[in-house]
Amino acid sequence: MAEIEIKNVAKNFGAYEALSDINLTIADQEFMVLLGASGCGKSTLLRIIAGLETASSGEVWIGGKRIDHLAPKDRGIAMVFQNYAVFPHLTVFENIGFGLRMKKLPNEVVRQRVEKVAELMHIEMLLSRYSGELSGGQRQRVAVARALAMEPDVILMDEPLSNLDALLRMEMRAELKGVLAESKTTAIYVTHDQVEAMSMADRISVMHQGKIIQADTPIQVYRNPSAKFVASFIGNPPMNFLPASRSGTKWSVAGAKFTGPETKIDILEFAVRPEDLKSADNGICATVKIVEPLGAHLLVTCTVEGHLFRVVMDSDTSLKTGQIITLAPQANRIRWFDPETALAL
């Protein structure tokens, strides 16, 4: 059992607050992705869990044991680094076996474990090579194999796929997810790539300016963002926002009326995802600015009362720049945000 608990962790670099008020519980065998733009503190948090950085305050617990005062090697973790950190002077075999050798395990055990994980990562034919003779993808496999060979409670991964080309990244994404699920370890995975996060995670923690904004399943984060930041960060193209004002019992958005939440605030923000809009007879009037055919669908950029508004439409739709279209959002997909706090209602 390796449940991870992060309690009130904060990290300051001088006057700069890199992390504040981080509270997160990660279940045993869960795949947790820390997602955020660069500089949001996600790597710092991972490095605090790894023991490569010390938190300014707070506690980290793994499997019911407080570990934030322990050396990295005593935490039951293994790590995959962004630049692989595959030792250039050791063969692939010795790289994978590095941690096992440090534990002074017998040669036979080291050999068995190295061969097992090498087979799992499909690099058994590379065991006698040096890293200079490997491609980026192969080095990444070695780095993952080295972590798996430790049979750790927790695997930490710091943007492990970011140095690979797009095609390889997609391939490794699926493979890594399968391998980690099979290994039954708890995994924390740092990335800035939302597609990676959505496709791999059991849960995503969206981070912004040193805080966790929302920690939930990918579909919840996508469908029910808890804050405007999450709504605009997740999804490509991102969610559309329009100002809404009270109009009797309903809310008026660019001339159209919608049923909204019960609240004392008079001005709200109306939000809807580009794919949750359809052309209709009644609804929001939008002026078409740019039409981008993307094959599977059409990405239409419009303006609604001066606000940027994107719509994903069927690729058979024929539209011209300057044309005025009427769009009706799918009622159950509309979200509302408080413009003051930027939180969802």
């Binding site: 090697k73 973790i77 680094f81």
Partner: peptide
């Protein structure tokens, strides 16, 4: 990173 990896791997 090599030293960090070495730290983590004991």
């Amino acid at each position: 990173e090599y030293y960090e990896a070495a730290d983590v791997f004991g």
